[in-house]
Structure formats: C-alpha cells, structure tokens
Simulated assay, not measured.
Amino acid sequence: MELVFLGTGSGVPSKERNVSATALKLLQEQNSIWLFDCGEATQHQILHTSIKPRKITKIFITHMHGDHIFGLPGLLSSRSFQGGKDLLTVYGPEGIKDYIETSLAVSETTLAYPLSIVEFTEGVLFEDEQFRVTCKKLEHGIPSYGFRISEKDKPGRLLVEKLKDAGIEPGPIYQQIKENAVVQTHGGQPIHRDDYLGPPKKGRVITIMGDTRSPEYNLSFVQDSDVLVHEATFGHEKEALAKAYFHSTTKQTANLAKYSNVNKLILTHISSRYQQGDDDKLLDEARHIFSKTELARDFRQINIESK
C-alpha cells in the first residue's frame, strides 16, 4: 500500500505544485489504484510516475471545486486509449454525474470501458472483503467530504510449533488450515483454524480529507489513523484568512492529529503564495505541535507498512 502525491497545491497550479490529486496504490492488495481528486493536468502528472491509468478502478472526489475535478474528463477519455477495459467507478458529491456526463457528451467522447458514477452524502460508501470506505461531510464553502479507508483485519500467523506439537507435520494441510475454518486430517481429526492462529493482524487506516475549516470537528472521524492526509492551505499567520475561505492552517491540522492518536500526518493543498523556500517554515509550525508530520510534495511516495 502506497500513497503517491500527484498534486499538492491549492486553487491554481504553481511551478512547484500542481492542483489536487492523490493516488493510493493497492497493487498487492487488489491489483488496482484508487485516485482521490483529479485536478487539472492530473494525467500529465501521472506521466512522471509508474502509475498506469488502466489500473485506476476507483476515483473519489472530495468536492466540486475546479482544482479538484478539472482533470477528470481528460483522464477518463485517455484511459480508453491506454488499455483501460475494466469497470471504473467515480464517487462524488451531488453534481458529479451531470459534470461527467455533460463533459463527455459535448466533447463526443466514447469510453471503451464501463463507467459507474455514484453520488453520495455520508456514511459507508464502499465495502468488500478487504476494505471499507466511509465518508464524512466537512465544513467548507460547498459540500466537501473526507474519506476513511479501513483495511480489514487479517488472520494471524499460523502457529507452526503448536501444530507440530499436535502431531500435524508441515505439508499441504497447513495451507488448507489457513483457508478453512475446519479441516480434517487423513485420520479424521478435526483441526479448528482459530486454535492454531496467532492474534489477528490489524488492518491499516488511511484518512484523506477534502477542503475544510474547523478540523477539530473531525476528531472522531480521523481517530487512530495510520496516515492522515489533510489540507494545510495556510500557515499559522493567516488563520483569519483560512477561516474566511473555509480552509485550515498548519497548526490547526497538527492539533487535530495530536488529539486523535494519528500515527503520521501529511500536509497537502498548500497555497501558491508559499514557494519551495517556505516549506521548512510550514513544516516546523506543524511539527512544533505534532512531531510526526510530513509535508507532501508533487511525486512524493509514502509507503504504508503492514502492522
């Protein structure tokens, strides 16, 4: 599991940062990639990475501001020419369906793959055997949402020594025990899997937030995240401006992480008023409150280790 930041700026692109887009690579888990937001030129940013658009199977849109959606029609179209055949599902707030369908219709774009568009409000958005995705409405100028991606717990490791002590020697039966609740030996002895497994391996939690002010209201939603990706559009000195424009500051975001037992905070959606030379200042403001903070930059990759 790996995060790839394709655009870490806000509002308009700058020389250092493109507008919002973050990829979650789940190649080992699902052989797919999920994209969160798709600002202008996201497909150009992808060209500088190893990401294959045909592997993108889900796109989650936080809100309908242009710096989060203007790259969507181009990416959807290009995916047809880049081997995309599998179903692609776009999840977004009210209006995303009209936006996509109108863009494709007026440009006379035909897709070579099935496209599903899901408009949401709050609650459970998606669930399968491996993951559960929930969304929460945030405080912003228009409806904006955060996404909590929860990996389900995995079975613990097989207790090989305990099996040997029970007279069950290594062989194909070990794999059968892993895959089945109850297995019988050749002698008819029932083997209950739960008796020979260690503690479950806890799944990882990644929370990716859309634009918001008053981040303290979202404490329970981001609680215990392994990684929290959160906007920090402004430095602390622009707190009044952040409030006026429904955004967060470095210190406000760091306080959210501090009081929600987050393991790692990644700041993104940085205003174009801050150039690369300002990165250390922004990072220091947040780290003064929450030491496990990092600042996202375009093309930065963050590996999220299994527990």
Rank of each mutant, 00 (worst) to 15 (best):
D98A: 14
M1Y: 07
Y91Q: 06
D298H: 13
L72R: 04
E305I: 14
G66F: 10
S32H: 07
I96R: 04
R17S: 09
L219N: 13
H288S: 15
D279F: 15
Q28R: 14
E119H: 07
I177A: 03
R17W: 09
Q82P: 00
Q189W: 01
V262M: 01
D86S: 12
G39A: 02
N255S: 09
A166Q: 14
L27D: 11
R54T: 04
L75I: 13
Q301T: 15
Y259C: 01
P200S: 13
G123N: 06
T109A: 12
V118C: 07
T253E: 06
L267Q: 09
S144V: 04
E179Q: 15
G92V: 02
A244C: 06
R79D: 05
F81T: 02
D280W: 04
L47I: 01
N261K: 12
H288G: 04
N303G: 00
Y113M: 04
Y259W: 11
L88R: 05
G188A: 10
S103H: 10
S20I: 06
Y196Q: 08
G203T: 05
K97W: 02
E169Q: 14
R79H: 04
L219G: 01
G187R: 04
H48D: 14
S50K: 01
T8H: 07
H68K: 09
N180A: 09
V205N: 07
M64G: 09
Q301W: 00
D279C: 07
V160Q: 12
S20N: 12
G277Y: 00
N261A: 12
R17D: 12
F234H: 13
P93L: 01
D298A: 10
V222F: 08
P190I: 07
L283A: 09
T293F: 07
P143Q: 02
S248I: 02
P93V: 00
